[in-house]
Design a protein around this nucleic acid. Structure first.
Lengths: 190, 190
DNA sequence: ATCCTATATATGATTTGTCATATAATAAAC
DNA sequence: GTTTATTATATGACAAATCATATATAGGAT
């Protein structure tokens, strides 16, 4: 359900086309809410049908015409309602944990390279997030309008969280590797 | 795709019915891979079609007949292949982060109660996970077969991770609340 | 006496998400 | 000169997940 709300969120900042939205997603929320191009276009159709967004057709000569979507008043209030509502019970899906859960079936020689891969992936993510934060931090500080600063703050909070969780994940993976190498299958309560 | 593999994982431990599987999911991997009852039954059909599991019909007098699923040799090797394969690029979906990302649109008075709710939820989860760990830890220690201990170890690792991440999440939420209360919209690189 | 829970499987409808592919023009890269 | 990337939208096919509901019996709770 969140794709609808996320699109409304972006449209609340400025009018965008489906193409723009795909870039906006890939450049910001992609790491916790990846969006498929086809899905974006279909959701935009639906938002239009529901009256939460309206379409403005902008003709172009050399490139395909653009369909610029604007959030409507109904769209704005739908967004606010969603943001003010009580949180639904969280339900996360983490494929890596499913793998780990059943990894007792395979031996260390096959498992350790996979864990090393996961570590490398995590470290790459962490570095990317730290770069994004450093960059965005400066840009947000230049904002003078309080409303804009506030919006920027919350956007950055998600990057901050990503960093925190990647760090925790790296530490966890590292401890697993160490334990396997020491043939020490123990769990200590954190 | 992970539901198929997760079911195979459970069937590799012992033969189970769809009903049993639903309980097994709810009692263990539910927090990172919730499974819908309808989906479990449909996936079992598919595993049967694919020859990865076979059905044994057990008639009962007072209760409905049971369809006990057994993993086949093909099923076992499919499971091992999956567990040995390189990891696909992670793609997580976290609805809470989508909310936070756009929370700059609402004011503190509406937001703070939501954050408090999220905190309460996290703390409840944390307590539940700690209880599960304490309990399961003892049970795993009584296992004498190395293969069983190994399987138990990896299952517990996911609980350990859950605890670690819930702790990180609680600290993060706490810091957000503090910053909002102090009207300090700053981000410090972790 | 009635309601709720547990046991057990099944299906229909719908929503979401994914993958591939189509069209069509320009501009840069090799 | 051919391939690749960028801009822009769209659809068909499919897989996966969610929600509601149906059937049927037994036993405990109110």
């Amino acid at each position: 359900m969140s794709l609808q709300q996320a699109i409304l969120g972006f449209l609340a900042l400025r009018p965008l086309t489906g193409y723009d939205l795909k870039k906006a997603f890939d450049g910001s929320v992609q790491h916790f809410w990846p969006a498929d191009q086809a899905q974006i276009y279909r959701t935009l159709n639906k938002l239009d049908e529901l009256g939460l967004a309206s379409v403005e057709l902008v003709e172009q000569e050399d490139k395909p015409d653009r369909k610029v979507y604007h959030i409507t008043e109904n769209g704005r209030s739908a967004l606010h309602t969603w943001l003010s509502d009580t949180l639904p019970p969280t339900s996360e899906r983490e494929p890596l944990l499913v793998r780990i859960f059943f990894s007792g079936f395979v031996d260390d020689e096959t498992l350790l390279p996979r864990l090393a891969e996961a570590m490398a992936q995590e470290k790459a993510y962490l570095a990317a997030m730290q770069a994004i934060l450093a960059n965005a931090q400066q840009q947000v500080e230049t904002l003078t309008e309080p409303a804009e600063r506030r919006i920027g703050f919350f956007q950055l909070l998600t990057v901050e969280r990503a960093i925190l969780h990647h760090q925790a994940q790296i530490a966890w993976l590292e401890s697993i590797i160490t334990r396997l190498e020491n043939q020490d299958l123990s769990i200590e309560t954190p």
